[in-house]
């Protein structure tokens, strides 16, 4: 294909139009998802309980083993890295503070979000994308069934419930990982470690982490669904959109993490 010389101003224009169209499509999707998830059940009294439970199992229950293993290791790594620095100033006991606070406020929600984006966000995009390419989405619409209501709202509902649940598990197991390492390799007394963790942790630390995790869950669902619905071609595009959904979910999670961290730093 011969290279076409495009006016640089035209490039800016084309990019702007593209970005505006993405923003428009995402806004419409967010509007629809939240209407069908949070408003429609009160209006129509119709809850998709069966599919919501099935999604809860896929998103939550099936993710427990990987969340447990990863957060246990992260807790241990965190304890060891902080012990390495803190022992220089003779403040080894503060390993408990560092592990507890950083896991509940930051690492618990973010590790969980990244794992969910990799497991569930990608599967949302792949599932909806392959349904789109097999005309199943058109078939749903032709039966008078809204695809967002049928496919995405159970996923969103399940995600809003399971993301904080997984985060609580990640928090506990991470702290436990730090505890195990501290009492064995670092030599902190178990009772002191537990006492120190209880003293260091405040309810607001846990709450801010959970608020974050709910927001991350919503972001991952929206991004996965958006990429799924954007599929127009065949299998190759489904693969591309699946990858794109994971990359953009993780990117958006980090961006919103910064936003929430700044917000909570100043307002809690």
């Amino acid at each position: 294909m011969p290279l076409k010389i495009v006016n640089p101003i035209a490039i800016v224009g084309i990019k702007t139009v593209n970005i505006l169209s993405i923003i428009k499509n995402v806004s419409i999707l967010i509007n629809e998802i939240f209407y069908w998830t949070l408003i429609s059940p009160f209006k129509t009294g119709k809850l998709r309980l069966k599919s919501t439970f099935s999604e809860m199992v896929k998103i939550g229950y099936n993710s427990v083993p990987i969340v447990v293993v990863i957060s246990f290791f992260v807790g241990m790594i965190l304890a060891l890295q902080s012990a390495y620095q803190l022992k220089k100033v003779g403040a080894l006991i503060y390993v408990a503070n560092l592990v507890g606070v950083s896991l509940t406020r930051e690492l618990g929600p973010i590790i969980t979000a990244i794992l969910i984006a990799g497991r569930s966000g990608s599967s949302f995009a792949a599932e909806i994308g392959s349904m789109k390419s097999a005309e199943e989405i058109d078939a749903l619409r032709s039966m008078g069934i809204n695809p967002v209501s049928f496919l995405v709202s159970p996923k969103m509902m399940a995600m809003l419930i399971m993301a904080p649940c997984l985060t609580i598990i990640a928090d506990f197991i991470g702290i436990f990982g730090g505890f195990v390492l501290s009492i064995t390799a670092v030599g902190i007394h178990p009772h002191s470690y537990i006492q120190q963790t209880i003293n260091a942790l405040m309810v607001k630390d846990v709450i801010t982490g959970l608020v974050k995790s709910i927001a991350f869950g919503a972001i991952i669902t929206v991004v996965g669904a958006y990429h799924g619905f954007q599929v127009t071609g065949g299998a190759e595009e489904v693969g591309m959109r699946t990858t794109a959904s994971v990359v953009s979910s993780i990117f958006m999670v980090i961006v919103f993490d910064l936003f929430f961290t700044v917000l909570f730093y100043y307002f809690t």
Binding site: M131, A134, E135, E136, D138, A139, L140, S142, M143
Partner: peptide, 9 residues
């Protein structure tokens, strides 16, 4: 409607 590939879920 019957779609080309039947489009069953």
């Amino acid at each position: 409607v019957l779609f080309q590939g039947a489009a069953l879920l």
